[in-house]
Design a protein around this nucleic acid. Sequence first.
DNA 1: TTTT
DNA 2: TTTT
Lengths: 154, 154, 154, 154
Amino acid sequence: MAGSVNKVILIGNLGADPEVRKFQNGGSVCNLRIATSESWKDKNTGERREKTEWHTVAIFSEGLVRVAEQYLKKGSKVYIEGQLQTRKWQDQNGNDRYSTEVVLQGFNGTLVMLDGRSGGGSFDRDSNRDAGGMSERGGSSGGQSYELDDDIPF
Amino acid sequence: MAGSVNKVILIGNLGADPEVRKFQNGGSVCNLRIATSESWKDKNTGERREKTEWHTVAIFSEGLVRVAEQYLKKGSKVYIEGQLQTRKWQDQNGNDRYSTEVVLQGFNGTLVMLDGRSGGGSFDRDSNRDAGGMSERGGSSGGQSYELDDDIPF
Amino acid sequence: MAGSVNKVILIGNLGADPEVRKFQNGGSVCNLRIATSESWKDKNTGERREKTEWHTVAIFSEGLVRVAEQYLKKGSKVYIEGQLQTRKWQDQNGNDRYSTEVVLQGFNGTLVMLDGRSGGGSFDRDSNRDAGGMSERGGSSGGQSYELDDDIPF
Amino acid sequence: MAGSVNKVILIGNLGADPEVRKFQNGGSVCNLRIATSESWKDKNTGERREKTEWHTVAIFSEGLVRVAEQYLKKGSKVYIEGQLQTRKWQDQNGNDRYSTEVVLQGFNGTLVMLDGRSGGGSFDRDSNRDAGGMSERGGSSGGQSYELDDDIPF
DNA sequence: TTTT
DNA sequence: TTTT
């Protein structure tokens, strides 16, 4: 098919430091746990209530993995733009299980740091515009190439 | 917390007719299965490849449930805006399982029909602006109220 | 028509304090000037370059006007979701002029404060979910009604 | 700066055929006029009212220019993702004038055709994923390079 | 497990 | 006119 759009936009805080795992082929993935929450006043009790939603983010873009690894930590506030993907896997009993993640890979993905402290860099899966010193360019879905600017200017 | 955003935007086609289930309390939920896909040319083989992602959408807003029920069917193309939510449930063995859905509820959610045939109405969780004849107004998270305009103008 | 979407998402900083003007009918509008910028490394000179874009935001939703008035100031970082609108007006010579703004009105609009200091409340045009203590409900495009929770919980 | 987001999402119909202008340096721009509209029921008169908003889109990405030129025409329904930009220019009297456009350039921009007839291709500023046969890769902000897949598979 |  |  085509004519479709699959986009997730999150602003939230990291519940833990980023976790990076390396693959044998040289690639890597960075997982983030991001909390978004909403609060409202219960119409019946008048109490304020709050609900937190936890999201798993998987970053495959090399440049963004390095940015996340270097600049993000537990508590960081970020803007994330990625795609919804559901992975199928087998648990120890051989049962099919599914996990849904927000994936930043290839050219699909944006990461913007929103913390006052760190300054707030903006990183894009691509382009040397709109990026805060990080430029990614690349190739087939199975093998990213990338280049890193010398300086991270924020 | 607060200061967070949780938004999913999908454009895709329904893989099946909408499924509506009624609750005892008078509410209802409408589930949609929506496919988004992307295609690319394999850098190594030169072949065109395609990957389809399936999304489960859960509509709790009364007005949108009725719209979906009446106007959508297998194959319909829609624009959906909702929130990511992960539900926890127990399988028959008592193991924790998780399902992630795109939820349209309360005022969080927009549904736009993109099929040429039906004309392409636009429905919003709210407002009597931006809606194609459907207006929803409502209440606590546990009990929607709503009102329906007499005419559906598309 | 229908079957259309008109959405603008901005994250940026206020270049000046919010400006609120009252209308005779009791309504009001709050204007924000928001800067977004991007930087990149010039391929030819190797210099880092930056371009800032200025956006005019017009908030008509009563609740959001009050939030902006009370909590935002020059320098504040915000997430804004609204609609693109172009207004026609006459200059002093009677020539037609056009101004394009990002409009938050009725139920179309979200404002999220992203500053660490102020805490980062999330305000929505609607709903008593997803709002940080502010709930808006309302009427015809020419006359908002609203209600304010007693406490602003952030 | 950085830490900012500037994103416009439109779904609407072309009010006229795309207009392409070539630059001396070999580049080109494609302008689209896109209508979005909303309708609502006047609370006072009970009449259904409708308001159409017209947007000017400027596509600078070479690949997307060609797609627009080849596949879009008056009446086509599209999904557009771009950035808000305001240009300053002088009118014949030397007065400063401003025009705000939705710009797709470099890697910022997505175009998805939503018409049933043409099939509905999805084109991205980049990537050979997520694109329906069109791949763009490129360079400095002042000079796009690009490559075209042989087949347009929709 | 975050944040306020 | 913001921010880093």
